[in-house]
Design a binder for these strands. Structure first.
Lengths: 192, 192
DNA sequence: GGATCAACCAAGCAAGCGCTAGTGTAATTC
DNA sequence: GAATTACACTAGCGCTTGCTTGGTTGATCC
């Protein structure tokens, strides 16, 4: 019985699981519900995942990997100014939060359901992502674009952005780009 | 069998429940765990609360009521300038988040576990609290202290503040007052 | 054309869940 | 001093949970 793999099939199952985890929360999502969503029986589920927790870890891992990849790509293809980079990161963050919404909502809400070992592994990924942010914020501080404690500024900005999953309506009038603009304007000590 | 009451005993039990809900999450907290924490047997628990959900609602209600009361009191005892009011609200929010931490973490993480009727009742309370914020932000906008869309600014600020529960260390070097200062400085388009 | 293997299923176990029923008891009320 | 009340107990019902077991299927490989 092979359990750990990253077959394409597993990716699909992971995405379906994310959907359910968002709707019901991790604890209320039973393996029977997961299996039904996947079109298999509950027993078969354990052919793809060692246990229920591993499904959660897979969901969060995929979302974080995507966010990291998108952020890196974005930073390579935007202008070199501190303002452009700041704005690009904000937009990338919001777009990830919306296109890959399920995985990120799960990461935000169900992080504490991970066992110690998964949490350790995944927090390294998250640290890598946050390091990108801190670099961009350092640039903005050095350029005089914003002022203050880099640690605090980074966390305030991430908080404002992550909080959007609780109120943002993708079908509303505002685009992710609008939000990024508005946020950067808010924290920038310089007329846009 | 009387069930609904707001005896002082119930307040204590509610606070103990909040503690457990933070540690384990609502779903993973069993009525047996709650009862043990309270020093009674699981059956006795249902003398004080109709069911498990009612305990959750009680926890969140108490936290929100406190936040609302503190915010109102703070607004009455601070200076009249837009900046003073903004700062006072930020500090009040952070202090509530820290002194009454358990209840607020529960409100943030377990909101969706409320049944429709409790959620309806409590969202009115929350709306009242957010209305205070929007008034303060309107003042700040009118005073030219900050710029932008009032809806977005309010949500960005609340996001930055609420996110603090995930990283703030009460035993660290920074006081809530420091945080409030830094946040207001960050979003204020005017040298402090 | 036998061997291998991933993918699935039916059946069910042991544990734990929220909650109820019925009872005991000390304090309070009339 | 009888009745009521608040609060706690014991015992357990009915159900769901995550997960295991043992076996079947169809495709692929040599």
């Amino acid at each position: 019985m092979k359990v750990i793999n990253d077959s394409p099939r597993r990716k699909v199952l992971t995405r379906q699981a994310a959907q359910l985890f968002v709707q019901e929360g991790f604890d209320r999502t039973t393996v029977r519900m997961l299996a039904q969503e996947m079109g298999i029986k509950s027993g078969s589920l354990f052919h793809h995942f060692r246990d229920k927790q591993e499904i959660l870890a897979a969901v969060i891992e995929e979302g974080t990997q995507n966010a990291l990849a998108i952020a890196r790509a974005t930073l390579e293809h935007c202008g070199p100014t501190a303002e452009a980079r700041l704005q690009a990161m904000a937009r990338a963050h919001l777009e990830t939060l919306l296109t890959d919404r399920n995985a990120h909502v799960v990461a935000l809400y169900e992080w504490r359901r991970l066992d110690a070992q998964a949490r350790d592994h995944l927090s390294h990924l998250r640290d890598a992502y946050e390091a990108l942010w801190e670099a961009v914020i350092d640039d903005a501080l050095a350029a005089g674009l914003i002022h203050g404690d880099r640690f605090l500024v980074a966390r305030f900005v991430m908080g404002a952005l992550n909080w959007t999953v609780r109120w943002y309506d993708p079908n509303g009038p505002r685009s992710p780009d609008d939000l990024a603009h508005e946020l950067v304007a808010m924290i920038t000590h310089r007329p846009a």
